[in-house]
C-alpha cells in the first residue's frame, strides 16, 4: 500500500515540540560506594577475581566472566597507569565547539585489567603515545566529593 496524500509544499510541514521532563539521581551502588569513598582519600580501588586472576577497576561486586562474588576482594591499585588509547576532542557532548580541545584517553591502571576514560593534562597532544606512563592528579582534598571528577586528569610521569 502507498499513502496517497503527500505534502506539496514545504510550508505545509508542521511539527510539535516537546521534551522528556525527567531528572535522575543515581546511587553509585555497593561497589561504587567503596570506589568513590576511597577516591576522596586520593586512592583508586579495584576488585580481584581469584578464579579468573584479574583485577577490575573500578571494582564490582561480581566477576562478569565467572559470576564469583568479589565484595571481599577489594584492593588498592595505586594511581598510576598507561595510556591505552587516546583522542583529541573539539566538541562538547552536545555538539558545541570547544575553544580549547581536550585530550581524552582510556587509562589502564597498572597491574589490572581495568581502567577508565579520563582527561589527560599537562601534556601536548602531539606528545601523547600508546603505553605512555601517566598518574592521576587529584583535586585538593577539601574539594573532593566522591566523584570521578575528584581526579582532575591524568598527567605523564616525568
Amino acid at each position: 500500500m502507498a499513502l496517497i496524500e503527500r505534502f506539496q509544499k514545504v510550508t505545509d510541514v508542521t511539527y510539535w515540540e516537546g521534551q522528556i521532563p525527567m531528572s535522575y539521581i543515581y546511587t553509585v551502588g555497593r561497589a561504587g560506594e567503596k570506589f568513590f569513598r576511597e577516591m576522596i582519600n586520593g586512592k583508586i580501588f579495584g576488585a580481584k577475581c581469584n578464579q579468573c586472576n584479574l583485577i577490575y577497576v573500578p571494582p564490582r561486586i561480581y566477576c562478569e566472566k565467572c559470576f564469583e562474588r568479589l565484595e571481599e576482594n577489594y584492593l588498592e591499585v595505586g594511581t598510576k597507569g598507561k595510556v591505552h588509547t587516546f583522542t583529541q576532542c573539539y566538541e562538547t557532548y552536545d555538539g558545541v565547539r570547544k575553544e580549547v580541545p581536550s585530550i581524552v584517553a582510556v587509562i589502564r591502571i597498572d597491574g589490572t585489567e581495568g581502567g577508565f576514560v579520563h582527561w589527560l593534562g599537562e601534556v601536548e597532544f602531539k606528545d601523547v603515545y600508546f603505553g605512555m606512563p601517566v598518574e592521576a592528579v587529584f583535586k585538593d582534598k577539601k574539594e573532593r566529593e566522591g566523584s570521578i571528577l575528584d581526579i582532575k586528569y591524568f598527567r605523564p610521569i616525568k
Binding site: 546511587t27 551502588g29 555497593r30 561486586i61 561480581y62 559470576f67
Partner: peptide
C-alpha cells in the same frame, strides 16, 4: 529505594537463580 545499581540487582537475582 535500593542502594544497588541496576547491574548489581540483576546480578543478585541471576546468581541466586544459578
Amino acid at each position: 529505594n535500593a542502594q544497588e545499581t541496576p547491574k548489581e540487582l540483576a546480578y543478585e537475582a541471576a546468581r541466586m537463580a544459578l
